[in-house]
Design a protein around this nucleic acid. Structure first.
Length: 292
DNA sequence: AAAATGCCCAACCGCTCTGCA
DNA sequence: TTGCAGAGCGGTTGGGCATTT
């Protein structure tokens, strides 16, 4: 990518062995060298940067260290519910496009989001004994997990009005607005009845070009849900095949467990960081029904 | 108290993409 | 047009820490 002249200091022909490159965890001294060098010379051209800075590291290693750890705007700490919601939303749209997802979470790195997905989200899929890419699990996220996240964010904002630990772009917004903005960043999808929404036809590229209200079913759901209609599932503009209406037309009540201490959130933070057994049992029952 | 197990995350690896000569 | 090198991305690994047995 650099293409702006190569070399400039040090030998170009040294092999990695000759340079005796270091690997493994970075030391504080190395971090200081890298930070100081970038402060003085800027980032980019990582191989020559590594050489010129006197670091016995590959350019790739320096780049990774800078982007994932040393960059001043890196946000550290737990992924907030708002961020979790955004990750679920964006992953449903783009899949494992971690860097693209990270662009929408200021301060978070693709590596961090990827780790979050693998350690937390995939764990839940495992607990439910289904594939993380399966429709069952996606429905679970869409109709159970995300609404509960929304509920949790609402509750937090109602109690404190605080937006601590909220990513930069969401910091100045009440949780509801933040959520709405998350959804509205992508517009609001006008879904015709019986229209199936797929990752293909809900791609961002199409949003960008149309400038109409476009959004994935999840965005629609979160947006709709958040605006206070808790019966929203029944009228959410998703196709019948995407909805959770039972054959009788009623809603799966298991997805509307009252927000008790036990089940209001089965997200990430202890002591509620696992699915409770009732949730798992209900989901398994519901998945069986949905397969009928 | 010690060993086993699980979890988390920083770092590495291999591949693809991009831009220059 | 082609080859090369740098940059970026997604997948994987390994070590440290926490929890469980």
């Amino acid at each position: 990518m650099d293409g702006h002249g190569r070399g400039g200091c040090g030998s170009e022909t040294q092999s990695e062995e000759e340079m005796d490159l270091r690997r493994g965890p970075w030391t504080m001294e190395e971090d200081l060298i890298l930070v100081n060098y970038i402060a003085n010379h800027g980032e980019g051209r990582w191989n020559s940067l590594a050489r010129c800075a006197g670091l016995k590291r590959t350019g790739k290693s320096c780049r990774l260290r800078w982007l994932n750890y040393l960059r001043p705007d890196v946000v550290r700490g737990n992924i907030t519910p708002e961020e979790q919601l955004l990750i679920l939303e964006l992953h449903s749209r783009w899949g494992n496009r971690w860097s693209k997802i990270a662009q929408h979470l200021p301060g978070r790195t693709d590596n961090e989001i990827k780790n979050y997905w693998r350690t937390r989200v995939q764990k839940h899929a495992k607990q439910l004994k289904c594939d993380v890419n399966s429709k069952q699990f996606k429905d679970t996220m869409r109709y159970l997990w995300m609404p509960r996240l929304v509920e949790r964010i609402r509750a937090a904002s109602a109690v404190s009005g605080s937006t601590q630990n909220t990513p930069t772009t969401l910091q100045n917004l009440p949780a509801g607005q933040a959520l709405t903005s998350v959804c509205n960043d992508f517009g609001v999808l006008q879904v015709e009845p019986n229209t199936n929404i797929t990752p293909e036809n809900s791609s961002t590229d199409s949003f960008a070009t149309t400038n109409t209200h476009v959004v994935s079913p999840i965005s629609d759901l979160t947006d709709y849900y958040f605006h206070g209609n808790h019966n929203g599932f029944q009228t959410a503009p998703v196709s019948c095949s995407e909805s959770l209406l039972s054959p009788s037309g009623s809603f799966y009540h298991g997805f509307e467990l009252p927000p008790t201490e036990q089940n209001v959130w089965f997200g990430m933070d202890p002591p509620e960081n696992t699915w409770n057994m009732e949730d798992i049992w209900l989901l398994q029952q519901q998945q069986q029904q949905m397969c009928l």
